[in-house]
C-alpha cells in the first residue's frame, strides 16, 4: 500500500514538472510575443533540461510515457470538431485527399533526392 502511494506521488511530480515547463514555455512566447506554441517551447525547455541533467529520471519518464502512449485519445475531442466543418468536407473532401497525397509524395521524393545529394546509403 505504501508502495502504491509512493508511485502516485512520484507520478504527480512528473505531471507537475511537465505542466511547469508548459507554463514556462507559454509565458516566454507570450512575453516575447512570438507566434510559437507555448507547448513546443516547453518541449524545448525540457529537452535542454534533460541534456543538462544527462538522463531522464524515472518519476518523469513514467507519467510521460503514459501520456505519450495514449496521446491519440487526447485529441479525439478536438477531432470531433470536424462536425462543424462537415459542409466543407463534403464539398472539398476529394480535392483534399488528392492534395494531401500529392504533397506527401512530393515531400518524400525531395527528401530522397537530398539524401542522394549527401550520398547517404539509400
Amino acid at each position: 500500500m505504501l508502495c502504491a502511494g509512493f508511485s502516485w506521488v512520484v507520478s504527480v511530480a512528473g505531471i507537475f514538472v511537465l505542466i511547469l515547463f508548459w507554463l514556462g514555455g507559454s509565458a516566454l512566447v507570450e512575453f516575447l510575443n512570438w507566434p510559437i506554441p507555448g507547448s513546443v517551447m516547453g518541449l524545448m525547455g525540457l529537452w535542454v533540461a534533460l541534456v543538462i541533467n544527462g538522463g531522464v529520471p524515472e518519476w518523469l519518464k513514467k507519467p510521460s510515457s503514459l501520456l505519450i502512449r495514449n496521446m491519440t485519445l487526447l485529441f479525439v475531442p478536438a477531432g470531433v470538431g470536424l462536425i462543424n466543418h462537415w459542409d466543407r468536407l463534403t464539398e472539398h473532401g476529394l480535392a483534399m485527399v488528392v492534395i494531401i497525397t500529392a504533397s506527401t509524395l512530393l515531400t518524400v521524393v525531395l527528401m530522397i533526392l537530398i539524401f542522394k545529394l549527401f550520398r547517404v546509403k539509400l
Binding site: G45, L50, P63, I68, L74, V76, P77
Partner: peptide
C-alpha cells in the same frame, strides 16, 4: 458543449506535448 465537457481530456495534450522531449532526448 461537448468540447467544454471533454476539456479535461484535451487539457492533457499540453503536458503530453512537453513530454515528447523525452523520446526526442533518447
Amino acid at each position: 458543449r461537448y468540447q467544454q465537457d471533454t476539456y479535461l481530456i484535451s487539457f492533457l495534450l499540453g503536458p503530453a506535448t512537453v513530454a515528447l522531449a523525452i523520446p526526442l532526448y533518447e
